[in-house]
Amino acid sequence: MLKVEGIDVFYGDVQVIWDVSFEVNEGEVVALIGANGAGKSTLLRTVSGIVRPRKGGITFLGEPLAEVPPYRIIEKGIAHVPEARRLFPDMSVEENLELGALKPAAKARRADSMERVFTRFPRLEERRRQLAGTLSGGEQQMLAIGRGLMSLPRMLMFDEPSLGLAPLLVEEVFQVVRDVRADGVTVLIVEQNVRQTLAIADRAYVLETGRIVRHGSGRELLEDEEVKKAYLGV
């Protein structure tokens, strides 16, 4: 479904991604794991078109994304739940959700999608008129995920959705990821919570300072000695 082939990414003159390739097949949950600053968010931002690779290419459903402007990526069926949520803080819960469904196809089903989000996250419905910036961290994360779902994506990218949440909410987030997949949406997830992520991931890639150093099924990586030492604290 998503194919990233040999990309180099720079911020200004500084290279942060070196010849990275990975793949996400339809229906999979694929995880990217790696230490802080490894370049995980950068990879997702590159898929979203916010930053451009200097070398290599990305295709989604067979279509190259190089010429697609960033605001068109969502139409292709890719939604991005970004790091730190990036909600529109001075807009209401409802408005944030509406902004997830701007394109004609998603807009036509906006009311329906919003009902589904509210059924999944009843807290959001209670707070539908509240400003996003005044929600609790957990509620904000639910809203960010809900906003991503509003576009009716084929693939949803999560960037550290459990960051800063209490254990109970972390559980909830991982349950949401499973539900999303069960609904037929492909998942690409970046997480620091390596153990839980590998447990739900079909496959995972390990990123170290901008290079992919390992990949395998979630189970294989959970058993991998290097991964255990570096990311699971064993």
Binding site: R45, S48, G49, I50, P69, P70, Y71, R72, I73, I74, E75, A79, H80, P82, R86, L87, F88, L99, G100, L102, K103, R147, S151
Partner: peptide
């Protein structure tokens, strides 16, 4: 950036 991700030109 978030606006771009929502498909806003």
């Amino acid at each position: 950036d978030a606006a771009l991700m929502m498909g806003i030109n």
